[in-house]
């Protein structure tokens, strides 16, 4: 599996005024909920899907996140937020 990297032409940023992470791109902004932000923060170009799932399951002491994370990353890929 290929490592997943956040897009170099988008910016993932914590917004203090909104108390949430946002994705910024030309003339636009997407507000993220906590779980979406957690997934994208893992997309650092070093980890692949299995490693991201493993990391988040450990971090939140849970299991069975594969489907949710895969579905979100597919959306992220379609929107150009991540690269594989």
């Amino acid at each position: 599996m290929q490592p997943i990297k956040f897009s170099p032409t988008h910016r993932l940023q914590w917004e203090e005024a909104q108390q949430k992470y946002v994705i910024l791109y030309p003339e636009g902004m997407v507000e993220l909920n906590q779980s979406s932000a957690e997934i994208l923060l893992c997309c650092d170009g070093n980890r692949n899907l299995a490693q991201i799932v493993n990391e988040l399951e450990q971090k939140f002491a849970t299991t069975g996140l594969t489907n949710d994370i895969t579905a979100f990353l597919e959306v992220a890929l379609q929107n150009g937020w991540i690269q594989q």
Binding site: Q13, E15, A17, Q18, V22, L24, E27, G28, M29
Partner: peptide
């Protein structure tokens, strides 16, 4: 400071 984030 007020929360503006997109700047043209």
């Amino acid at each position: 400071k007020m929360g503006a984030v997109q700047l043209g």
